[in-house]
Amino acid sequence: MGLPVITDYAQPTAAELPKPRASWQPEAHRMALLVHDMQRYFLRPFQAENAPLAPAIANIAALIAHCRARNIPVFYTAQKGNQQRCDRGLQADLWGPGMSWAPEHEDIIEELAPRPEDHVLVKHRYSAFQRSNLETLMRVRGRDQLLVTGVYAHIGCTATLAEAFQLDIEPFIAADAVADFSRDDHLSALHWIARTCGVPMTTEQLLKAL
């Protein structure tokens, strides 16, 4: 129970990205960016200075800066520590009690820290849409595309993308701005997303398109 120890692995390259079923293209006037669960608690299993985490952080930072400069809304998810069992729900059965309310657990890392103009959503379940007003905040801003970055690719990132699709929001994942338990998990998530609900792209491709 709890998070595993994660071995270093290389981020996927453009040549490794699966071909998506969808032909959607990212558009700056329709896009919102989500920085998913980049809290210290979730990043502890990684070697911070190595891949996949170090390049993921650098790529997320580049996407945040790019989006802020173009008035693309930036959203963050962040869980609260010391959750009661009734609030944590079935996640407690799989992952244990989770984080405490200490800053070394709850804080979003400094390299990606939100600004006052950004939106920080309290995270309750795998999907960022669950028990949050993410959809409403996107709709009132005329946004119907969502770009997901962060951790973990095969869990919360994938769940969020799948729910976005079911809400008729076009989902994109920055394939080298996410990280996972293993490279197999990471690549499997990209393949599942490409086949069922979204478009994987590299950070370089996204920066050019946006």
Rank of each mutant, 00 (worst) to 15 (best):
P103T: 04
Q166S: 13
A92Y: 12
E135T: 03
T196W: 12
E106R: 10
G142H: 11
E16V: 10
R21K: 15
P73S: 07
R68D: 07
A22P: 01
A153W: 01
A78K: 15
H105T: 03
I64T: 12
C67P: 06
A113Y: 10
Q166R: 14
A102E: 12
I109L: 04
E111V: 03
A15T: 13
G142C: 10
V140N: 12
I155N: 13
P114Y: 09
A175F: 10
A209P: 08
A179R: 00
A128W: 07
R195I: 02
D144E: 11
R30S: 04
P20E: 11
I64D: 00
L94W: 14
A174M: 09
L210C: 11
D168Q: 09
P45Y: 03
E104M: 08
G81I: 02
I108H: 01
N71C: 08
L210S: 02
P103S: 09
P45C: 04
A32N: 04
D176L: 10
T196G: 08
A62E: 11
K208G: 02
N59P: 03
D8G: 07
R85Q: 12
L90F: 14
C157E: 00
A102V: 06
F129K: 04
A102W: 07
I173T: 14
F172L: 07
I109E: 01
E111W: 01
S188H: 13
I173F: 08
V148G: 05
Q166A: 14
